[in-house]
Design a protein around this nucleic acid. Structure first.
Lengths: 211, 211
DNA sequence: TTCGCTCTAAGGGTATTCCCTGATTTTTCA
DNA sequence: TGAAAAATCAGGGAATACCCTTAGAGCGAA
């Protein structure tokens, strides 16, 4: 049985690279190559791949939303996220969005084939290094409180307002609450993010994609 | 005459992709493939490529420093920077560091060959889109004060200290200057970056790769 | 219904930032 | 070598951020 693969990446080099890796494997057939989100959405309907290798960083839409949309339209399609980044927050969100696997672009042919087998078997495939990272993180080994940063709805609103360079006073007016409340939220955010001041909040927030 | 090419990229897919693109071109010979900075530094001595395709985002060293080091050790070597990013600040810094060309990873075979020819001819090669961007920017079309942000050496030091979440007092102790001086620098940085406060400084600094 | 979390708010104090102005010295570079 | 840019420092005041503690109301889950 032949497995039909499609690939989405805005970098031709990567498309070419994967094609080349898989060219001498008989059980694999590449049925679609897409450069962006909209091509992918249309393409998978036409080409009916079994597995989609999906680069997360696309020009027209972010990987998380695209992954959700694809899975909604076609739950049978297996999606393996492809990324340069091994940030835990990112990975978690992709998996939550329905991705069946997560690979970094330093993958080799063997791992690619293993990943295909695994997801076709309805299991989740994570690159070795990534699995380790997720484990370490959930055990809480690292002092770098990498993730698990859970801000409440209100805290997120305050965070965004801080990022807009608003003062406490301005934020309180924007959210119709007391400036004292805003301060409390800011303090709690600082504490959750391990920041010493608002600068630290913004740094950590950006690093962890909270904005 | 055969042109000897070496490639540095930590993503095997990209290595494979470029190899595959160039495999049927007789005038090109790939003499080295490196995964990181140190391999590159050693490799180019041994393999003596004419041109190095250098990915900017490497695990062990940043592209700018590596480019400088390579050019210093071997000024004849042509270096074409390879990147996912088309941010003007980045490009400028790579070119300042001695790069002879700048390509995004969405490049195709034709452009790759054109780039080779151009740099071998002692000219600078920039990808079409990038050239446009640089032009637009220098004309000052965009209101987004995209770049031209020129911080002085000292301002950069202060900026970095701010990013470390230090207070003015702490920064002054670190740099052995008066806290008043630090404040002056901070004010000047705010003004240059168009920020309302330190949060804005950090945001803009991160956006513009000043950190 | 109790427990836990969130959101709200306040008091009161200290530390720091932000802003303006003005000035001297040092460095850079044309 | 002279002008421009950069780095240094200062005073003083208003605004804001930071910090700690306490506490009531509302809501959803155990």
């Amino acid at each position: 049985m032949i497995t039909k693969i499609a690939i989405t990446d805005d970098h031709n080099m990567v498309l070419q690279g994967i094609q080349s890796m898989l060219s001498d494997t008989k059980e694999i057939k590449i049925v679609g190559l897409y450069n962006n989100g909209s091509e992918t959405l249309n393409g998978v309907v036409k080409d009916e791949p079994d597995i989609l290798l999906l680069d997360i960083n696309l020009p027209d839409i972010n990987g998380i939303d695209l992954c959700k949309a694809l899975k909604k339209a076609n739950p049978i399609l297996k999606i393996i996220a492809l990324s340069n980044y091994d940030e835990v927050s990112f990975i978690k969100r992709m998996l939550n969005a329905g991705a069946d696997g997560y690979l970094l672009k330093n993958t080799d042919k063997l791992e690619l084939l293993t990943a295909f087998k695994t997801v076709l078997n309805d299991e989740q495939y994570l690159q070795r290094d990534i699995e380790k990272k997720l484990l370490n993180q959930s055990i809480g080994k690292k002092t770098t409180n990498n993730l698990l940063i859970k801000l409440t709805r209100r805290e997120k609103e305050v965070l965004e307002a801080i990022a807009e360079e608003l003062t406490t006073q301005e934020i309180s007016e924007k959210l119709f609450i007391s400036h004292k409340t805003v301060e409390t939220h800011r303090m709690n955010i600082m504490s959750k993010l391990g920041a010493k001041n608002s600068v630290g909040i913004i740094k950590t927030a950006i690093e962890n994609n909270l904005l």
